[in-house]
Every structure is written in structure tokens, then in C-alpha cells.
Nucleic acid binder design. Structure first.
Length: 921
RNA sequence: GGGCGCUUAGCUCAGUUGGUUCAGAGCACCUGCCUUACAAGCAGGGGGUCACAGGUUCGAAUCCUGUAGCGCCCACCA
């Protein structure tokens, strides 16, 4: 570690070493004893486990910075703060990565076989799985790394299996044939949440199905009744028209449906039509799902490839005909001409063939949302298949109640409603995935003749429980990745064992995550929490925004608009990264960062860290090595500036605490910034400079040193959760007052609370007046070009008596100011030529200019400027006086011209006034 | 189709229960300074009819209604 306080902050030189030392010291670890025996009030966060194959992106950067701030703050508050880290095995995502690797070697997972493939994934995970956790360390995440968990490790697999069996035994897990979302590329089922709708411009095609001759009468009647779907071809044959966005599915149609109350089509119900291209005849049925108002009021029914159609088939008894292979090609159920064709090719062919047959009634553009696989973005195909489901309604009830009664609170609050609506309309969860990487479903089927028993067990069965046969076959599927994630808040603590960890750390407290996984994960965790632990896994959910680029687009790999947090850490340090994202982290707002200009994107954090570094260096150097008195020993020697900064410290601590309690990070950063930069660095340090240079042993100097050390210590504590590295580096070097116990580390130093003893409204008011005076003088000097080095005499008049006596009392402070500003305060004698301004309290500041500036030149300068403005103004007024201009030019332009004129006039008048002052001699 | 949110300085955003302390911050911009902590800095400065139109009120960025634009979530409309 760099032991020198180098001139420039070099994050690379200090961060890694500081982090390693903090870990060694055990700053981040917590044993359950601290809670169970030590009486510490726990504060627990379990990390949203990143995918094991992931590398850190800005979303993680934001998410984990926020968690770390909370954990570090609570730890300093003396809570038993525990942040449990870990990774998710991420079924599809990880399997995809390894499959792509295999592809490069010209192999598929089937070439390897299940066992070898799983081994391959494991070795991949073991090689690369630690990456993201190391990256979290680089941004300062103070997790208890001894507790790192993985959703597919043996202990957690036990939890998964236990949960599956329990739910199965309770009748909440069932197997059934339903339409699910099928990804033809991943070859697996997807839950509704995993099928992401993408709004696309598609085509709505209209297809004609011909009536057999005997139905002609009924068709004609329906036509007469206003049935727009019914028509008569040139050949005299009657047909009906249905519409679809997926024409190829007509090959799987097994019926046409109308609304039961639709009088137009009533005569047709029970009759049949000829399904083109297939030689099949399909019935017309009535079902209430059909909206008579939409389109023609007639719907083709494809039970195997549309969820609604499937439901219709269940109610009406229509046949179910699957016409697609798992890969999304047409299967053997369709006529030869289409067999083996990819679905999109089949779509073209169907349309071509229908056109040839004169049964294509045209198409039109149609915007609609098409579900895509959330992992690979392939168009998802609704497909009938046998899958495992969890019956969710019973689980949703307590989770819903928890939100309604506030047991679980959401920040920002509007997500509460979204969450509740999802739970109110909850649908069963498809949990089986046709993958090899994941928790295998603990179900066996007995293949013995005539048995067919299904066994769901905690321990792999050797033989059939029903018939004793040994021909058991395990279900090939694995569980949805979220089936292990929803147990995470307690599985990480050893559930289903009855562990001390569980006793001490469950339930946890805060969940920090993105709104995208509110349903995937948050809601399900609450459900699992109640079902298996009897209470919610956390009491607050903070949902932060999405990280976007300068154009507002979500950062993503495919757009190439991402920012690599590691690059930011390398260039500007973890503190800069953290500070920047926190300063942008308002409740409910997204975060915009320009990926093309990291320098300016991270300037706020970089500048802040650097300023802290410099102010810290100065503080440490100025205080020096000599013994420092504790604050309470110097209370009789406090300067007004000391009282002021102590007062500000107290209110800042209070404000920051309240901000953190409400997850208002932007506000917290602003308070910290205002106090540290505005109050501490800009004013206090400047004001104590003079006193610090005094004689050793001088009471005012010792008071200043004591206050400085105290305030700097507390400031670093307040800033530590935000910027842990620089603060710790500096804090370690603070000379400690004699007789005061030094906390073992900054990470565990007590969080500064509000301290009413030092709150001093009088000192704040008087300082505010003082600051105004100084600012005003600076402004006047600047305006009249009085050089910064020049000493000026000031005359203050019209002061309230109160203010005057306060000022006399604070003579020392004014002298300090005089040194800094090069000002001199004199008494009012002849006022002469000068500039003046009136402060808020009525005091008039008069700055005599004679002798300081060349008055003649100043008058000349002003005169010239006034003439220039006057010319501009005349030009502008002339333009406005021109009717041609005002009537013909666009309103906006005229308006702009008026504004310009007003500005010229204002400025001219202002300068004229100034000139008057100068001439007042 | 339903629900929610946003619109404040060139950019990104703060503005808690309507009121001197509210029109702010950071970045960008302009001017002057390399003042022995800091030029990744200091000091000073310009810039906003708080989307638009109504309404409530003594008083509205803040509350109500409507309009426009943008965004998000949910949804089985072929």
C-alpha cells in the first residue's frame, strides 16, 4: 500500500490492498453468535445472485453499490450486518454458453451425452465462475465471502429437492398437458415470464375454408343474417373467411369457432367446412371466447398451438393436432408437401398453395406482440406438451397479504400495485425445462408392465414402491432456474436444516433489485418465505432503475453501448464509480451514463474522490503529529467557525441517516457533497488555516486541531459507505486524541448520529451572514476588476445593532477572513467613489474603488459597453417596429427578438446605473 | 385494450405536507486566477413563462381537469 500521501490520488495503488486488509481483519464477517448471544440486532441482505457465467456490467455495479452502502451504513450503526454473496447456476443461460463452445468444436450436447455434458458445464463453471465475485470485490462489496453460495451446490440442491417433494405431497405440484411457450432453439419450455413479447409489424392473413355442398343453404342464411365471414366464390361455392398471423398453423386446425350468442352464425354451428390443403373436414363450434366484434367474428381453432384454442378444444371437445416438431418444423401430421419445412418457410408455402387454390383472401399489415425467448430471442412457439407446474394460487395469498398490510414495503411505492396485481391474477408456474444443466426433477416412473407408478422422493429410489420393480426411469427434465432462486433467502442459511444461521439471520431485511425481476424472483421469494419459513424473507424491497446510455437506450451487449465497470475502476477507482452511480440514483429513476465519454460520465465521482484526497492530505498535514486534544477539552476555546462546522456536521449526519432509511441515495450524496465540499473544504479549512499556523500550545490552534480531527473523523465516517476506499486510507492516518478509544477500523466505527449538543442555530445564522458578506465582496471585486491580491478597505453601514455586536464578537473570524481575502475592514469615514451592495440583513457593503482601479478607464469601458448595447437595442427595436417583420416572421422568431431586446435594455440600464455610481464623486 | 410514471437551466436530474429560507445540484458554458491541499482545482458569472390549456386558492413547479409528447408494466383478441 502506498504509505505516502502522494500528490495525486492513485486508486489502483490503494484499493486492492485496503480491501484485502479489511477482509483479513474480518470487517465483513459475521457469525450467528453475534446475534444469538451477542445481542446484535441483525441486518441481513442476500445478494441477487448474478449468473455464474456473467461478467460484471453497470447494472450489477449499481445494484451492488446500493447494497453495499446499506450494509456498510448498518454495520457502522452497530447492527449485525450480514451480506450473503453467491451465484446462480442460470440454467438456460449457462447451458447456452457451453453449447456454443461445443458448437465451435463441431459438436452438440447430444454427441457428449448427458453425463459428459454436465461434467463439461461444471468444469466451465469452476474455471470461470468466480469472476464476477472477484469483480464485486473490486468495487468494494463488503460481503461475507466465507458464506459464498451457489444455487446448484449440494446443500442448496437439498433445499430444492425438499421443496419439490413437499409441494408435490401437498398436491401443489402437478404434471399436465398444456400449451406452453416453447423455444425451438433452446428446445425447452419457458415460463410466461420468460417469453418476452416484442411488438412487431406482422401480417394478418385471411384464409377461406369452403363449405361442402350440403351446407350451402345454411351458409347463405348466415350471409343474409349479416355474417361477413361468409361468401360465395365465382364457382358458386360458399366459404367462410378466418384470419391469422400464423397461416402455417392452419394445417393444425381442428375447428372453426363462433360466439354462441352470435345470431349471424348460429345456423352454422354443428356443420363442417373443408380445411384446405389437408383434405380434412373440421367442425364449426360455439365458444364464448370468440369476440363477435373482432374481425369477422369467426376464429380458426388450432388447439395444439395456441393457448386459447387449446382451452376452446377442452370445452368443445375439438381434436388436438400437433403439427410442429420441437425444432419448429412441420411434422408428419401435415401433407407431404409441407413436411419438414421450417415454420416460416411453411408459412410462405401455405400462402402460396392457398393462393393457387383461390382460397387466399389477401392480407394486411398488423402490429402485434410476438413472444421471444428471453435468452436467445428466438420467436417462441406456443406448443402443447407435458410439463410440471406449481399451483400458485394458495402460495400467492400470504404474499399478497404481506404487501397489503405493509409487512413487505416497496420503494418506490408504485411497484406495490404491480406486484399485487400480478399476484391477484397469478397463473400456475411451469417449472420443467428440457435442459441438462440444473436441478433434475426428483420424479421416477415405473416402467414395469401394468404398473406405471410415479415416485417423487427425497432420496433416489432403488425400486418401485408399488410393484417392487426395478425398471425405474427418472424424469429427464430439470427445474426452472428460479425454482432454486426463490428459496435463496433461506437456502443460503442451511435450510431445511435447523441451523443457527437460520435462527439468527432469517428473515432478512432489504432486497435490492431491478423491477424486471419483480415477478420472476421477488414475488416468488415472498411466497416461498411464507410457505416454508412462515414469514416474509425481507421487509423492504428497493427497486432501482435501469442503467441506460446517453440516448436512453438500455445498456446491452448486442447494442454495444455498455460500460465495463472494471474499466471505470481501473481508470478512476471504485469510489468514483460508486459515487457517480449513487449520485444518479433517485427513487424510481433510470440512470443515464454516456458510454462514449467515460471521462465526463464519471467526472462527479472522480472529482469528489480527488477532492476528498486533497482535503484529507491537507488536514492530516496541517494537524501534524503532536498530541491532539479530545473535542470536549477544548470547548471553551471554540471559534464561531468551529461551532458552525460542528453544528453543520450534526445536521448532515441526521439528514444522511434519514435519507438512507428511505433509500434516497441521490439525496444522501447531495447532503454529503454539500457538507464536505461546500462547508468543510471551501469554508472551514480556509478559516482554520491561519489558526493552524499558530504557535504550538496556542489555545486557538489546539482548539482548531481538536475540532478538525473530530470533524474530519466524523466526515470520513459519513462518507465511508459511499466511498469506502479513500475514506479508509485517510482515516487510518488520523492522529487520535489522547484518551479516546480508536475503533478497530473505519468499517466498524460508529455511525455519526445527530448531536444536539453541538447544534447551534445562532452559529449557522451568523456564518450564513458572514458567507454572504464574503461572497458579495468577491463579487464586487470581480465586477470592478479589483485584483485578487489587492487589499481593500470595506465599509459596512446600516447594520442592525445585533449584527454589529455579533460581528465585533467575531472579530477573530473577520481577521481570518481578512487574511484569506486580502480584505481590510475600516470604519466609515468619507465614502468616496466605490461599489456597494446590500446584504439580506440590511447591511450595506461599501467597497471604495479609488486607488484600486483606474476609474477613468473603468468609466470609459462602461461607456463603450453601454453604447454597444444601446446600438444593439436600437437595431432590435427597429426590427420590432417594422410591421413587415412582426406580421410575416414566425411568431417564435418575433418572440425571440422581443426577448433579445429586453435583455439588451436590462443590461444597458444596469451598466448605466453602475456608471452613475462611478460618477457620484 | 387496461394500469402506472415522466415532461423544471444546453445535458442528467433534485424539489418532502402549496407560502420569505424555492426556482436548485452536478456536468457543460463564459470570465479571472498555476493564491505552497487540490488546475480532476479556486473565485466570479450567464442561462429556466417549472410541457401546454383551463380550474381551485390570498398565493401553484407543488392540488384538480383536459391536451400533447415520451417511457414502463400487464393482457388470450385470432
Amino acid at each position: 500500500m502506498a504509505d505516502e500521501l502522494e500528490t495525486r490520488l492513485n486508486p489502483q495503488a490503494i484499493e486492492a490492498a485496503l480491501y484485502a486488509r479489511a477482509r483479513e481483519r474480518g470487517d465483513f464477517s459475521l457469525s450467528p453468535d453475534a446475534v444469538l448471544d451477542g445481542g446484535k440486532d441483525p441486518y441481513v441482505i442476500v445478494i441477487p445472485p448474478p449468473n455464474v457465467t456473467a461478467v460484471l456490467h453497470m447494472g450489477h455495479g449499481l445494484n451492488n453499490t446500493v447494497q453495499d452502502v446499506l450494509i456498510r451504513w448498518r454495520r457502522m450503526q452497530g447492527r449485525g450486518a450480514l451480506w450473503v454473496p453467491g451465484t446462480d447456476h442460470a440454467g438456460i443461460a449457462t447451458q447456452n454458453v457451453v453449447e456454443r463452445q461445443l458448437q465451435k468444436e463441431g459438436k452438440s450436447r447430444f454427441d457428449l451425452g448427458r453425463e459428459a455434458f454436465e461434467k463439461r458445464v461444471w468444469s466451465f463453471v469452476e474455471e470461470t465462475g468466480g469472476t464476477i465475485l472477484e469483480q464485486l470485490q473490486a468495487i468494494g462489496a463488503s460481503c461475507d465471502w466465507e458464506r459464498t453460495r451457489f444455487t446448484l451446490e449440494p446443500e442448496l440442491s437439498t433445499a430444492v429437492r425438499e421443496v419439490f417433494v413437499r409441494l408435490y405431497e401437498k398436491g401443489l405440484i402437478y404434471r399436465g398437458e398444456y400449451i406452453i411457450n416453447w423455444c425451438p432453439r433452446c428446445l425447452t419450455a419457458l415460463s410466461n415470464e420468460e417469453a418476452e413479447p416484442v411488438e412487431l409489424e406482422g401480417r394478418l392473413s385471411h384464409l377461406r375454408y369452403a363449405f361442402p355442398a350440403e351446407a350451402a343453404g345454411a351458409a347463405a342464411k348466415a350471409r343474409e343474417a349479416g355474417g361477413e365471414a361468409i361468401g360465395q366464390g365465382e364457382d358458386g361455392r360458399w366459404f367462410l373467411t378466418v384470419s391469422t398471423t400464423r397461416p402455417e398453423t392452419m394445417l393444425g386446425d381442428t375447428g372453426v369457432a363462433v360466439h354462441p350468442d352470435d345470431d349471424r352464425y348460429r345456423p352454422l354451428v354443428g356443420l363442417s367446412v373443408e380445411l384446405p390443403l389437408t383434405g380434412r373436414t373440421i367442425p364449426i363450434v360455439a365458444d364464448a371466447f370468440v369476440d363477435p366484434e373482432f374481425g369477422t367474428g369467426m376464429v380458426k381453432v388450432t388447439p395444439a398451438h395456441d393457448p386459447n384454442d387449446f382451452e376452446i378444444s377442452r370445452r368443445t371437445g375439438l381434436e388436438v393436432l400437433n403439427v410442429l416438431t420441437p425444432e419448429g418444423a412441420m411434422n408428419d401430421e401435415v401433407p407431404d408437401a409441407f413436411r419438414g419445412l421450417d415454420r416460416f418457410e411453411a408459412r410462405r408455402q401455405v400462402i402460396r398453395k392457398l393462393k393457387e387454390a383461390g382460397l387466399f383472401a389477401g392480407d394486411e399489415p398488423h402490429r402485434h406482440s410476438v413472444p421471444h425467448c428471453y435468452r436467445c430471442e428466438t420467436v417462441v412457439e406456443p406448443r402443447l406438451s407435458e410439463q410440471w407446474f406449481v399451483r400458485m394460487a394458495p402460495l400467492a395469498e400470504p404474499a399478497l397479504a404481506a404487501s397489503r398490510d405493509g409487512t413487505v414495503a416497496f420503494y418506490p411505492e408504485r411497484w406495490k400495485k404491480t406486484y399485487e396485481e400480478w399476484l391477484e391474477n397469478i397463473r400456475d408456474w411451469c417449472i420443467s425445462r428440457q435442459l441438462w444443466w440444473g436441478h433434475r426433477i426428483p420424479v421416477w416412473y415405473c416402467r414395469a408392465e401394468g404398473c406405471g407408478d410415479v415416485i417423487c422422493a427425497r432420496v433416489d429410489p432403488e425400486e418401485c414402491l408399488a410393484c417392487g420393480g426395478r425398471e425405474l426411469e427418472r424424469d429427464p427434465d430439470v427445474l426452472d432456474t428460479w425454482f432454486s432462486s426463490w428459496l435463496w433467502p433461506f437456502s443460503v442459511f442451511g435450510w431445511p436444516g435447523k441451523t443457527d444461521d437460520l435462527k439468527a439471520f432469517y428473515p432478512g431485511h432489504t432486497l435490492v433489485t431491478a423491477p424486471e425481476i419483480l415477478f420472476f424472483w421477488v414475488a416468488r421469494m415472498v411466497m416461498a418465505g411464507y410457505e416454508f419459513m412462515g414469514e416474509a424473507p425481507f421487509d423492504s424491497v428497493f427497486l432501482h432503475g435501469t442503467v441506460r446510455d446517453a440516448q436512453g437506450r438500455k445498456m446491452s451487449k448486442s447494442l454495444g453501448n455498455g460500460i465495463d465497470p472494471m474499466e471505470v475502476v481501473d481508470q478512476y477507482g471504485a469510489d468514483a464509480l460508486r459515487y457517480t452511480v449513487l449520485s444518479l440514483c433517485g427513487v424510481g429513476t433510470d440512470i443515464h451514463l454516456d458510454h462514449e465519454d467515460l471521462d465526463s460520465a464519471f467526472a462527479p465521482g472522480r472529482n469528489f474522490a480527488n477532492k476528498l484526497w486533497n482535503a484529507g492530505r491537507f488536514t492530516l498535514m496541517s494537524v501534524g503529529d503532536g498530541p491532539v486534544r479530545p473535542l470536549h477539552e477544548v470547548s471553551d476555546f471554540l471559534d464561531p467557525a468551529d461551532r458552525w462546522i460542528l453544528s453543520r456536521l450534526s445536521s448532515t449526519a441526521d439528514g444522511m441517516t434519514r435519507g438512507l432509511e428511505r433509500f434516497r441515495f441521490h439525496e444522501v450524496v447531495e447532503l454529503a457533497h454539500h457538507f464536505f465540499r461546500g462547508d468543510f473544504a471551501d469554508w472551514y479549512l480556509e478559516l482554520v488555516k491561519g489558526r493552524l499556523r499558530g504557535e504550538e500550545g496556542d489555545a486557538s490552534r489546539e482548539a482548531a486541531r481538536a475540532v478538525l480531527v473530530h470533524v474530519f473523523d466524523r466526515t470520513l465516517r459519513l462518507l465511508h459507505p459511499l466511498v469506502p476506499f479513500v475514506t479508509e486510507f485517510l482515516w487510518d492516518r488520523i492522529p487520535w486524541p489522547e484518551g479516546v478509544e480508536r475503533p478497530e477500523s473505519l468499517a466498524r466505527a460508529p455511525w455519526p448520529e445527530r448531536d444536539p449538543e453541538y447544534e447551534d442555530a445562532g452559529a449557522e445564522r451568523s456564518m450564513a451572514g458572514f458567507q454572504e458578506l464574503v461572497t458579495t465582496v468577491r463579487s464586487l471585486r470581480k465586477e470592478y476588476g479589483v485584483g485578487e491580491g489587492a487589499k481593500v478597505e470595506l465599509v459596512l453601514t446600516g447594520m442592525a445593532d445585533e449584527a454589529r455586536s455579533a460581528m465585533e464578537r467575531d472579530a477573530g473570524r473577520l481577521r481570518a477572513l481578512a487574511r484569506v481575502e486580502g480584505l481590510f475592514f475600516g470604519t466609515a469615514e468619507g465614502r468616496g467613489v466605490g461599489a456597494s451592495a446590500v446584504l439580506l440583513d440590511g447591511t450595506e457593503v461599501f467597497l471604495p474603488l479609488a486607488g484600486l482601479v483606474d476609474l477613468d478607464r473603468e468609466r470609459e469601458r462602461l461607456q463603450k459597453e453601454i453604447e454597444r448595447l444601446d446600438g444593439q437595442l436600437r437595431g432590435s427595436e427597429q426590427k420590432l417596429g417594422n410591421e413587415g417583420f412582426t406580421s410575416r416572421a414566425p411568431e417564435e422568431v418575433v418572440q425571440k427578438e422581443r426577448e433579445k431586446a429586453a435583455t439588451f435594455r436590462d443590461q444597458r440600464d444596469k451598466l448605466s446605473e453602475k456608471l452613475q455610481t462611478l460618477r457620484a464623486e
